[in-house]
Amino acid sequence: MRAEEEQEAEDLAIVRALQILRGRLREGPVFSRPDEVKDFLRLQAQGLAHEVFAVMFLDAQHRLIGYERLFRGTLTQTSVYPREVVKEALARNAAAVILHHNHPSGLCEPSSADYALTRDLKSALALVEVRVLDHVITSDLGALSMAERGVV
């Protein structure tokens, strides 16, 4: 009988922990200023010697649902597949996203490929009514918001 009681107590603890986690995700931070987003994203890729492409998934009030590194690349490039980005946005029921990748070289200036990728992802996500709010490029030295440049 004692083992059954312990099992029941553990099951209740697990259920309560999951409820707490769900509540925290629903009440996640709201990113309302570009500098908050840039600081958050710089921390996510600080010190990496390779490129990563990641996405901040946001709800309709721009609260963070999750941040996910979707693709890993080399020192100078990362292959990104729009289909996979759309699938993740739908799986998380995101209303909006902020795209992110890093430049290990230290320079945050977008390349022509970065502009093309932003355009392609914006088009693909628009088909499923997910807004692209920004595409931020970070390095250990700084961050650049493509929305602040009028690209997004």
Rank of each mutant, 00 (worst) to 15 (best):
F40D: 11
M1H: 11
L18H: 11
C108P: 00
E51A: 05
Q46R: 14
R26I: 02
S111L: 07
F40N: 09
F71P: 06
S111P: 05
A13K: 12
L64V: 13
T78R: 09
G47T: 13
G106N: 10
A49R: 14
A96E: 10
G150H: 08
H100E: 12
A54V: 02
L43G: 15
E4G: 11
Q46S: 13
L121H: 02
Q7G: 00
V52W: 01
E129L: 02
E10C: 02
R119Q: 08
D35Y: 05
G47Y: 10
V15F: 08
A54W: 01
K87N: 09
V37H: 04
E51Y: 02
V136P: 06
L70K: 01
Q7L: 15
A96M: 06
A60D: 14
S145H: 05
E36F: 00
L12T: 05
P34A: 12
L117C: 05
G47L: 13
D120F: 02
A9Y: 00
I65E: 10
G150K: 05
D39G: 06
A13F: 06
E27K: 13
R149N: 08
A89L: 06
A9K: 14
M146F: 04
P104G: 00
F40K: 11
L127N: 12
A17D: 12
D59W: 08
D134E: 11
A147T: 04
F71N: 05
Q46Y: 13
A13Y: 04
H50C: 00
G73R: 06
E36L: 08
H62S: 14
G66W: 11
L90K: 13
L70F: 03
